[in-house]
Design a protein around this nucleic acid. Structure first.
Length: 273
DNA sequence: TAAGTATGTTAAG
DNA sequence: TTAACCTACTTAC
C-alpha cells in the first residue's frame, strides 16, 4: 500500500521505536546479508522519507535505502521476535521492537553522496516541511504531457501514487488528459495544497481517505459503502459504479501502464484555453 | 494448482 | 511500449 504517506508514516514508526537505539540486523532471506552484517550493532540515528523512498540512518555516511515498490511491506512487532519467515529481506531488532521488510524493490546500503543524488532526482514532496509546489509548476506548465501522467512522475512531484492521482483530479474536477501546460496556476496551487492536506491525513490514519464529509453515502442519503482497499474514495477502483456526486458511471483506462479512474461528467474534457 | 491482480520503478527494444 | 522484478492475496478451474 505504498504511496508517499505510507513511507512518511514508516519513517515516523522507525523513529518512535528505534531512534538512538542499538539495532541488531539480519537478512533471513539472504539478499541483504552483507548489508545487514554492516549495520548489525549500530545505532539508528534517524529515519527520513522523500516521496516513496525511505532512509534509515546508521552513523556517519551510512544509510539503508528502502523502496517498497508495488509489493513491498514493512511490519512491526515486539522483541524478542518470532522466527522469521523465509521472505524477510531485513529484520531489525532493538529496544523491545522488531521490524520485518519483505519484497522491496530496493534495500541497499548507501553513502551520504548517494542519498543526495536520490533527493536531487526527486521532485518536491508535499509532506516534506519547507517544500512548495513552484518547482513542480515550472515543469507542469511547460509540458504537453497529460496532468495524469505528470502527477505520477516522481521527478515532477514526489510521493503521489495511483490513488492520490485519481482522487485529487476528481476533487478538483480536472480532466486527467488535460496537458500540463493547459492547467491554470490557481488549479495547480489548489491541487498542491490539497495533496499536502490529504497526505498528512493519510500519514495520521495510515490509509487514504478523500471523500469530503458532505459527500459520504450516509450524508447523501445512500447506503453505506466499503472500499476494499481500506479507505473512502470517489473514483479509485470504482469502475462502472455510480459517481458519488453525479451518479454517472466511473470510467477506467490504461495510461502509461497504470489504471486511470475518473468521472467523465465531473471531470469533463475542457475546451483548450 | 494456476492465473490474475495490486497504492511502483527501471531497463531494454 | 514491453518485460522484468519482488510478495501476497483473491479468483478460476
Amino acid at each position: 500500500m505504498p504511496e508517499g504517506h505510507t513511507i512518511h508514516r514508516l519513517a515516523l514508526d522507525h523513529r518512535e521505536r528505534f531512534e538512538g537505539r542499538t539495532i541488531r540486523a539480519t537478512s533471513p532471506q539472504g539478499k541483504f546479508a552483507a548489508g545487514a552484517a554492516l549495520i548489525d550493532g549500530a545505532v539508528m540515528d534517524t529515519a527520513e522519507a522523500h516521496g516513496k523512498h525511505l532512509f534509515l540512518g546508521f552513523g556517519p555516511d551510512r544509510w539503508v535505502h528502502i523502496h517498497l515498490g508495488l509489493f513491498g511491506k514493512l511490519g512491526f512487532g515486539t522483541a524478542p521476535p518470532p522466527p522469521p519467515t523465509d521472505t524477510v529481506r531485513l529484520r531489525l531488532t532493538g529496544h523491545g521492537h522488531h521490524a520485518d521488510l519483505r519484497g522491496p524493490t530496493t534495500c541497499a546500503l548507501i553513502t551520504d553522496a548517494e542519498k543526495r543524488a536520490i533527493h536531487d532526482r526527486l521532485g518536491p514532496d508535499p509532506l516534506r516541511p519547507g517544500e512548495d509546489g513552484d518547482r513542480a509548476w515550472r515543469r507542469i506548465s511547460r509540458s504537453r504531457t497529460t496532468v495524469a501522467a505528470l502527477l505520477l512522475d516522481q521527478k515532477v512531484i514526489a510521493g503521489v501514487g495511483n490513488v492520490y492521482r485519481a482522487e485529487v483530479l476528481f476533487r478538483h474536477g480536472i480532466d486527467p488528459y488535460l496537458p500540463g501546460r493547459d492547467l491554470r496556476r490557481d488549479q495547480w496551487d489548489a491541487i498542491w495544497a490539497d495533496l499536502a492536506a490529504l497526505m498528512r491525513e493519510g500519514v495520521r490514519n495510515n490509509r487514504i481517505d478523500t471523500v469530503r464529509p458532505e459527500h459520504t453515502p450516509e450524508a447523501m442519503g445512500r447506503p453505506p459503502r466499503v472500499d476494499d482497499h481500506g479507505g473512502e474514495v470517489y473514483v479509485y477502483r470504482r469502475t462502472g459504479a455510480p459517481c458519488l456526486l453525479c451518479g454517472d458511471a466511473v470510467r477506467t483506462a490504461g495510461l502509461a501502464a497504470r489504471n486511470l479512474f475518473w468521472c467523465p461528467t465531473c471531470q469533463p474534457a475542457a475546451a483548450r484555453p
